[in-house]
């Protein structure tokens, strides 16, 4: 069932642009950062190489990379030799991988497009990096259109959700059955929540997207809040959570306002933001009717 949903999502993911197989502007690009990989694919640019594709297909899911994209290994230590054999024209990184630059520069000119920077809401940065990628591949208009479409869709979703979802919302990922990580204002999810006009129930400091794991009892501090759980959730957690007295007693759980979303890249760019907004609508769109 999960699989069916995934493929459905994958099918609708690129509704904005039909995949453009042509290597735009003749540039063969290798992508280290998953956020940029999403953006490239969304704009119809198919990179020659990207990192951790196995994991990407599980966690980021869409836009799905075509099978001929070479997997160059872990994001933290990409396979430089393979990169050399593939010989891309450019390499895309983000701030997280800036330390790899000296090595990557030896293969091809390396471009750093930041999405996550301390203290800055990532959505605007993601828009900027989307335009920059558009500029790199001669797809300025497409990038502009994608940014606008994403913005418009998020606004539309916000309007629809705003009528039904009146509670502040926790956006969390569950580590085990006792702890969660909360996504704060400086995360992409937090930023999107704000753009949707919803209230983030987690108001404490976070750094780079998510706070350190905290006990589930922290959820009780805002009793009326809804809970959105970003997948994937480990199977044994899903099983034991039902037996957790505190979890079961949360109004959100009792009233069906605790929903699990499909897996979404935690450090994504616009496509992840969009995916998150759509997932949120799917999960909470019926809230008004339910409660």
């Amino acid at each position: 069932m999960l699989l069916a949903r995934r493929s459905l999502l994958a099918a609708t993911a690129l509704a904005v642009f039909a995949p453009r197989r042509a290597r735009a502007a003749g540039k063969r690009v290798a992508v280290i950062d998953w956020g940029h990989l999403e953006t490239c694919l969304a704009l119809g640019v198919v990179p020659v190489a990207a990192t951790e594709l196995r994991q990407y297909r599980e966690i980021a899911v869409e836009p799905a990379p075509p099978p001929d994209v070479a997997d160059i290994g872990l994001r933290g230590s990409p396979n430089i030799e393979l990169l050399r054999m593939i010989a891309p024209d450019a390499i895309l990184i983000s701030d997280f991988y800036e330390y790899q630059r000296p090595l990557l520069e030896r293969i091809a000119p390396t471009v750093n497009l930041p999405v996550y920077q301390p203290g800055k809401p990532p959505y605007a940065l993601a828009e900027r990096s989307t335009r920059a990628i558009g500029g790199m591949f001669g797809l300025k208009a497409e990038a502009e259109a994608f940014v606008a479409a994403a913005g418009a869709e998020i606004e539309a979703i916000g309007q629809r959700l705003g009528q039904v979802a009146r509670h502040p919302i926790f956006i969390v990922s569950l580590g085990d059955s006792r702890h969660f990580r909360a996504f704060g204002a400086d995360s992409m999810f937090g930023d999107v929540i704000a753009r949707l006009g919803l209230e983030n129930a987690w108001t404490d400091r976070t750094s780079y997207s998510a706070a350190a794991p905290v006990g589930l009892e922290a959820l009780a501090r805002v009793p009326e809040a809804s809970v959105a759980v970003i997948g994937p959730t480990p199977p044994e957690v899903r099983r034991t959570l039902a037996e957790n007295a505190l979890w079961s007693a949360l109004p959100a759980v009792e009233q069906g306002r605790a929903q699990e979303l499909a897996p979404i890249n935690h450090f994504g760019a616009l496509p992840s933001a969009l995916r998150f907004a759509r997932e949120l609508e799917r999960a909470f769109g019926g809230e008004g009717r339910a409660g």
Partner: peptide
């Protein structure tokens, strides 16, 4: 393996 991070740190948080 997010759970293993938590686990490696040894957290005594309880809900039961």
């Amino acid at each position: 393996l997010f759970s293993l991070f938590i686990w490696g740190g040894g957290s005594l948080t309880q809900q039961s």
